[in-house]
Amino acid sequence: MSPTAIFINSFVLLFLIGSFFKDKAKTKKALKVALKSFIKMLPMVLMIIIFIGLLLGLLEPEKISQFIGEQAGWGGFFLIAVAGTIMHIPSLLSFPLAASLLEGGAAVTSVAVFITTLTMIGVVMLPLEIQVMGKKFALLRNGFSFIVAVLIALILGAII
C-alpha cells in the first residue's frame, strides 16, 4: 500500500471512529449510504479498468503521445478538452483515467484540461442547469468553464 493510500484510509477511519462515538445510528446510516454508492459505482469502475488495461496494454506509448502528447500540438489538446465536456463519468474516476493517459505518454496539459472539462462542464447536465438557473447563466458558466479549463491546463503544464 502506498503512503498516500495509508494516509487517506487512516484519515477516514479516524472520522469513522469519531462519528461512531458521537452517534451510532447516524454512522450506521453513513456506512449503508457508502455501501450503496460503492455498489452503484462498481460497473463504471470495472469499465474504466478494462479501458485502462486495453489502452496501456495494446497501444504503444508513441501512439498515445502522437495524439495527445507533447508533440501533438493544439489539435490533440482541444480534442481531449472537448472529449472531457461530452463524457459523462463520475469525477472520482477521472483521476485513474488521467493517470493512465499520463503513463501512456499524454502531455500534462492534455491530462489537466481533460480533468477540468470532465468535472466542470456537463453537456448531459445542461438541461437541468438551464431549468434551474436559466439559459443565459448555464451557457455562460459552461463557456467560461471551458476557457478556464484551458488556462488552468496551460499554466499547469508550464509549471510541472
Binding site: 484510509n9 477516514v12 477511519l13 454512522t27 453513513a30 457508502a34 454508492s37 459505482m41 472520482l92
Partner: peptide, 14 residues
C-alpha cells in the same frame, strides 16, 4: 482507495 472515499462521503452526507 474507493471504499474509504465512499465511507467519507457517507459520513458527510449524514
Amino acid at each position: 482507495l474507493l471504499p474509504a472515499i465512499m465511507v467519507l462521503m457517507g459520513l458527510f452526507m449524514v
